Amino acid sequence: MGFLIGNRFSDTIRRRLEQDMVLRHHLLPFAQAPQTKPLIEAICNNNKAKYPSHWDELMGIVDGSQAPLLEIIVLNFRREILSCIQDEASIVDCTDECSDVLVVSDSLALAAHNEDALFGLSGYTYLIKAKLQNGIRFIAYSHAGELPSRAFSFNSNGLAFTMNAVRPVNDEIDPRAIGRNFLSRDLLESTSFEDAIARIRSAEISLGHNYNVIDVQTRRIASVEIASKFRVSVHEVGATPFFHANMYSHLQNIKQIIDENSTSRKRRADVMPKESKDDFLCVLGDAENKSFPIYMKGPKLYTMCSVLIDLDEQTLSIFRGNPKNKEITHVFSLQELKEQSQV
């Protein structure tokens, strides 16, 4: 599959590699330095040992796109490597942002997500619809050159995932451990809600992440926060709407960077109505705080798209522009994807 992805999107992947200034000016010089070769080798070896088939898929992206091997490797371990070469303040300047609002009540079961990133990443994403050798089908919104998907996805077992970056301080990070992209890719093969949680627990993650696990068949949503050394917290979402930005919310005893962008978004979301699907879209589209809006329009950070997963309708809808305007570009039926996997 990796070769097919690389070949199909080769131009997009190579353009991203050429235009990514953080990659060119920071990541590559660091990775190419003789003294950091043992670190890069350790990162690669540990992830290859844990996920050999996903590693082969990554090598397929390299071969299919004809992109430089080191550049694809560094791109897929972007945040892990950034933690080694930057102080805590500058990590905030170079990473991505996202927002989620989640609820499971008697009348409403929704997961709403803004996919935010540096403005320069705009135009370097794509949707992948694939069938794996084990019969599982998935649809994933992916960043060019990276394993699917560190953004959002769902599979034919009725499981969907959204993700948010979190920012532990450098002392909390093990850069040689498992990269977030490899765990995100592994989740696409989850067979159940419990299996997805188990896959997260089994990964000795490098720096931390927030994975939202959504099971449309059992009508369950969990916000899972992880950190290095197998630290995991699972918060099952109920009738009280739950907003997550880019800070740890429920994993205890973790030192993290205090991010005014995240705290401001959360304060605003907490006071907004969340009684209907339209309310959730209004939360994602809110820009009242001009300095730290939930819906981002640049100049630095940009909401590339928004997604709404309706567990009762079993649909995933992607919105272009401000989701309050309800301009839907794609609607996917999770039931149809399940039926296709049985053919």
Rank of each mutant, 00 (worst) to 15 (best):
Asp63Phe: 07
Asn76Asp: 08
Ala42Ser: 11
Gln86Val: 01
Ile43Ala: 06
Asn47Gly: 08
Ile61Phe: 01
Glu97His: 08
Tyr51Asp: 08
Asn47Asp: 09
Ala42Asn: 10
Met59Cys: 12
Glu80Ser: 12
Asp93Phe: 06
Glu80Gly: 11
Asp100Phe: 03
Lys48Cys: 06
Ser53Glu: 15
Asn45Ala: 10
Asp96Trp: 15
Ser90His: 15
Ile43Leu: 13
Asn46Leu: 02
Asn45Cys: 06
Val103Pro: 02
Asn76Phe: 07
Phe77Ile: 03
Val74Asp: 01
Met59Thr: 05
Ser53Thr: 10
Ile91Tyr: 07
Asn46Thr: 00
Ser99Trp: 00
Ile73Thr: 10
Val74His: 00
Val103Asn: 04
Arg78Trp: 00
Val101Cys: 06
Ala67Glu: 07
Asn46His: 01
Thr95Trp: 00
Ser99Cys: 12
Ile81His: 15
Asn76Met: 11
Leu58Lys: 00
Ile91Ala: 02
Arg79Pro: 06
Asn76Cys: 05
Phe77Glu: 02
Ser90Asn: 15
Glu71Asn: 14
Tyr51Gly: 06
Ile43Gln: 04
Val103Glu: 09
Cys84Val: 10
Glu57Trp: 02
Gln86Leu: 15
Trp55His: 04
Pro68His: 00
Ser65Ile: 01
Glu88Trp: 10
Gln86Phe: 11
Lys50Met: 07
Ile85Phe: 11
Val103Lys: 05
Arg79Tyr: 08
Glu97Asn: 11
Leu70Glu: 08
Ile81Asn: 14
Gln86Gly: 03
Ile72Thr: 06
Ile91Thr: 08
Asn45Asp: 10
Gln66His: 15
Ser90Gln: 15
Cys98Thr: 03
Thr95Val: 12
His54Glu: 10
Lys48Gly: 01
Glu80Gln: 14
Phe77Gly: 04
Glu80Pro: 09
Asp100Thr: 02
Lys50Arg: 11
Asn46Asp: 08
Ile91Arg: 03
